[in-house]
């Protein structure tokens, strides 16, 4: 996951690459397996930095050392407010939506309102690429004839909704603040890495397992077949009705996932890293 983050973060002339140079992080390389600890620290640094910048922007603080003038109660309220705001802003939907059209039988005719395959009928295409009604329509079904059909230069939409949504998507692509989207992505991935790191430091087995669960869509999306299989097997071993491990082994899998080299609380590290 960290490698995916680095691929996205340090792509071309992105901010993270710039930050790496400005803060002289020469040991950080794009290849995570070579410099794991440096990358991990850098990611933490960048995440903390952007979180603080976000707060400075919201509370209108000119420098990082400016102390806002507020009572301790107000400060606590502001802290809650700012944190909630950051999380809500960077939040990505983690649930997977499967479009219902994928579940239909393959041989269903997917075009036109009538959903019937009329042989030899002339069809017209809706200009909205995201048209949900079928994209191609029989002239008869939309009240057109070969004489009244729009010319090649003219645009045609099957409905007012398609016309409006096409307008919206056009204007949206011009108004997207790419820099902001990039920072949001960075923060989302950074925070995501941070909570996993905390779970490992505390050897919080149930949480680590839970994170494996929410990482599955990421593994599938980025074609990490090995981790998809590993994660799936791990989760299947102790959740639901299919749990097939004896209690002792289950306990071992949940709680024996980290190693504490230096002793003390909150200093566990990943077993595979050791």
């Amino acid at each position: 996951l960290m490698q995916d983050t680095m691929n996205k973060m340090c792509h071309k002339k992105r901010d993270a690459l710039h930050l790496k140079n400005v803060f002289n992080q020469r040991s950080v390389s794009k290849n995570v397996s070579e410099t794991f600890n440096y990358v991990s620290d850098f990611l933490k640094f960048v995440t903390e930095g952007y979180t603080l910048l976000f707060a400075m922007e919201m509370l209108d603080l000119p420098t990082l050392d400016t102390v806002p003038t507020m009572t301790s109660a107000e400060a606590e309220e502001a802290l809650n407010y700012v944190s909630t705001c950051i999380v809500d802003t960077v939040w990505n939907d983690v649930t997977v939506h499967i479009p219902s059209s994928n579940l239909k039988e393959e041989d269903t005719y997917g075009f036109c309102n009538c959903k019937e395959d009329i042989e030899g009928a002339v069809m017209i295409e809706c200009e909205n690429v995201a048209c949900t009604e079928g994209v191609w329509f029989h002239l008869e079904c939309v009240g057109l004839t070969e004489e009244t059909v729009p010319g090649e230069d003219e645009v045609w939409f099957c409905s007012a909704e398609c016309r409006n949504s096409n307008k919206r998507s056009h204007s949206a692509s011009h108004t997207i603040d790419r820099k902001f989207e990039y920072v949001k992505m960075l923060l989302w991935r950074g925070l995501s890495d941070m909570i996993r790191r905390n779970a490992v430091r505390q050897n919080d087995g149930p949480m680590i397992t839970l994170y494996w669960k929410c990482d599955l869509p990421q593994f599938i999306k980025h074609n990490h077949t090995k981790y998809t299989i590993l994660g799936h097997r791990l989760i299947a071993k102790f959740t639901g009705l299919n749990c097939f491990l004896p209690k002792r082994l289950r306990q071992d899998l949940i709680w024996n996932r980290t190693i504490n080299l230096s002793g003390g609380r909150g200093t566990n590290i990943e077993t595979d890293l050791v």
Binding site: L52, L79, W91, L191, I195
Partner: peptide, 24 residues
Amino acid sequence: RKADLVMMTDILYHEKLTKEIPGR
């Protein structure tokens, strides 16, 4: 404190994530 802000954001992020995972 700066560390409080980062920690608080982290906690809220964690809470929001665990709320959304089905079958917990």
